[in-house]
Design a protein around this nucleic acid. Structure first.
Lengths: 252, 252
DNA sequence: CCGCGTAGAAGTGCATGCAATTCGGGCGCG
DNA sequence: CGCGCCCGAATTGCATGCACTTCTACGCGG
């Protein structure tokens, strides 16, 4: 009767949820790099379940955009393109503006304490591995989302935050998370103060700067599978991607 | 060349995708009302596949929030609370602001034509069943999202739009979609004109008014399964929902 | 007449088995 | 020496089977 955590809805109560959480964590801590293979049997064996369950878990993760599922192919950890990364951050900014707008001036003392404790933990982890810092920073934002008590907001913020986390591991060099921590403290302070506009702006610039610092190079190629890069050029039948954005649409 | 939408990623290529799309459509057209049971065998039989596949499809739909999955229980079409509905619309507004911001002044002629054709179809359906009108209106927004060529944006907008559609069927009385059509036309016009702020405002007020018109009554009980409404009161052990939002948090 | 317990039916949770497809390497040919 | 082909191993796609849980309706006692 111990681990009856909470009434999640989709994927949680059973072994599927365990696998999902484990893989999510492994992915955002870069124990599993983008492109890493995830064979169903191996997963099943590793977690002591059958392929059926592992498969189901992969399905869920694919729905979240963390893994890529190609028919009859081994599932792999997703490798978001640079543009997708940018889009993810744009979405994230909007969602988190919503979060802090709802939270401004509404935090209880215990919630503030929880947030401060988390940032302290981030601080403590500054010397350690970069991946851990990134994970903690991400979890700070998810913690905020949880405090809205809006399941939908939690779900979307979590998802998109994980995605961003994944892209960070792809495109960012091992760099400073220091200033981000200060920005987290500033956000907490502004939330307590209760100025909606202020805290929304703070969150906006915070995420925007993280994105800009991370996504410096618009060149996605990273030496990784150049074979994959050439794929769109190889297939010349049923070209939909090529004709659909004739260089105008995607400009922005 | 009609329904060959695009290379989806998670769930599309096979039978699972077929079932998902069919159920999604049935749900948003209210052929399946919120609370309707979805037994795995029946689905499997209906679509000519095994329970395994039906189960997987239900998992995907659950991840999208369209169905509810409780352990050892028959899956049911989701019944979002009033608050969840409101949250979904808030999120949707932000996402779609992003959509039209990216699209303003960037639409090709053929895209404009496609949009106009769709609105014409909406117009033509005005006499018909209410559910069809709602579906078409929803699809207009998804069509817009597609034109951004941003897979992530498409995914999230679609998901949240379907959710909103679901809540509309729950909380709104059979009422006017007429003005919504005019607003769609206005949005297209503003997109062509290219004024970002204008079109963002237009979209904002459009969705907001739809939400306000639909979610008039903060009273969620609708005569439906009052047995379900009493559920949280019945279980007095492990009360998490009750203690977690002691009327302060959820105020906003 | 109504509540209550209980057994059968219905349904889910999960593993396993088999067919189909892809992967990987060795062999033959140019 | 390089390149393409082909065959076995690896892996996925899917259905079926069995154990366990929940639902339902019947019969019994009050």
């Amino acid at each position: 009767m111990a681990p009856r955590s909470a009434g999640k809805n989709a994927e949680s109560s059973d072994k599927v949820g365990v696998i999902c959480r484990a893989l999510r964590r492994a992915i955002i801590e870069q124990a599993l790099e983008p492109g890493a293979k995830l064979p169903e049997d191996s997963l099943g064996e590793r977690f002591g379940v059958s392929r059926t369950i592992a498969r189901h878990a992969l399905g869920q993760l694919a729905a979240e955009g963390l893994v890529e599922l190609r028919r009859n192919r081994i599932a792999v950890v997703a490798t978001p393109s640079w543009q997708e990364a940018r889009d993810a951050f744009d979405i994230r900014i909007q969602l988190e503006r919503l979060v802090v707008r709802q939270l401004a001036g509404k935090l209880s003392k215990s919630q503030v304490a929880t947030l401060n404790a988390h940032v302290d933990a981030e601080d403590a982890a500054r010397g350690g591995k970069d991946a851990v810092s990134i994970r903690l920073a991400t979890e700070f934002h998810i913690l905020l989302a949880h405090m809205t008590s809006s399941p939908i907001l939690v779900r979307y913020v979590s998802e998109v935050a994980y995605r961003c986390c994944l892209t960070l591991s792809l495109y960012s060099r091992p760099h400073s998370t220091e200033c981000a921590i200060n920005e987290h403290r500033a956000i907490i302070a502004a939330l307590v103060k209760g100025d909606e506009d202020k805290v929304m702006g703070l969150m906006h610039t915070h995420l925007d700067s993280v994105a800009n610092r991370a996504l410096v190079t618009p060149a996605p190629q990273r030496g990784r599978d150049l074979l994959d890069i050439l794929a769109p050029y190889a297939e010349e039948g049923e070209s939909e991607r090529v004709v659909k954005l004739p260089k105008v649409v995607r400009a922005r």
